[in-house]
């Protein structure tokens, strides 16, 4: 059957990048390669700058994904929702392109009468449930994130429960940035289940740098390159999305 694989990066951060390439540009690059970038801004109180929120929004926008700023306490549920919504959105985008090809220019799901829309949506739901998912989680472990990492851990375990309840299979990997000597550190390589994350975030960097852009760039490289045709990441799709 080969329904293909959805590729997503989930970035968890609490503020602005301040080193290296512009993360918004890198996110656009990811999108061109069929990888969706979602961003969750994690705040304790209202201590996040206007600029930080703006960057979070724009990374997701150019990465074709979804962004949300949340309080640490609501993290678990948000991580789950954002991931699911982004999957639906990506599939929706692909289905829309197919519809345009069948029905002609400017015909999207919204232009169909409600009765037909329901049938299309069933296909979208079905795909969201059965497609495979490669999810790379990229966690900002700069000093200001220190007291939030406990909740991040919990949220990721929770996400694993949700995604593993799907019919399609999943692969997760976990990276943190900034790394010790490099831009990113690998905490977990591709695995079907996130089970025990206890102590995984022990190496915290205390420096003030947040190299979001370079970290994203390395994350893109971590996706397995497959030559076989897949729904989301084949060449055809890339050409279309370039238009």
């Amino acid at each position: 059957m080969g329904k293909g694989t959805l590729k997503q990066i989930l970035l968890l951060t609490d503020g602005c990048s301040n080193q290296g390439e512009d993360p918004i540009a890198i996110a656009a690059l990811a999108k061109e390669q069929g990888i969706t970038v979602n961003v969750i801004g994690v705040v304790d109180d209202d201590r996040i700058s206007e600029q930080g929120i703006e960057e979070i929004k724009n990374i997701a926008l150019s990465g074709g994904g979804i962004s949300q700023v949340v309080y640490t306490k609501q993290l678990a549920k948000t991580v789950q929702m954002v991931t699911r919504q982004a999957m639906t959105q990506t599939i929706h985008g692909v289905v829309n392109r197919e519809l345009t090809q069948i029905l002609g220019q400017d015909q999207e799901i919204e232009d169909l009468p409600p009765e037909k829309r329901g049938q299309v949506m069933e296909v979208v739901d079905e795909l969201g449930e059965t497609m495979d998912l490669d999810l790379l989680i990229l966690v900002d472990t700069s000093a200001s994130m220190k007291n939030k990492l406990g909740m991040v851990q919990e949220a990721l375990t929770d996400l694993s429960i949700s995604l593993n309840s799907r019919i399609g299979s999943n692969k997760f990997s976990l990276y943190s940035f900034p790394g010790k000597r490099k831009n990113v550190d690998k905490l977990l390589s591709w695995t079907p289940k996130i089970e025990s994350l206890t102590g995984v975030f022990h190496k915290l960097s205390s420096g003030g740098i947040t190299p979001t852009g370079p970290a994203l760039q390395e994350a893109i490289e971590m996706f397995p390159r497959k030559s076989r045709r897949s729904l989301i990441s084949d060449d055809e799709y890339q050409e279309e999305s370039g238009m």
């Binding site: 429960i161 949700s162 995604l163 593993n164 309840s165 019919i167």
Partner: peptide, 24 residues
């Protein structure tokens, strides 16, 4: 039936309490 739960509220969700999956 058999798919994964779309929406839930933590207090009423067995996944939250660590008592099961979110399979419908």
């Amino acid at each position: 039936l058999g798919r994964s739960i779309k929406e839930y509220t933590e207090f009423f969700d067995r996944g939250y309490w660590g008592l099961g999956t979110r399979k419908a």
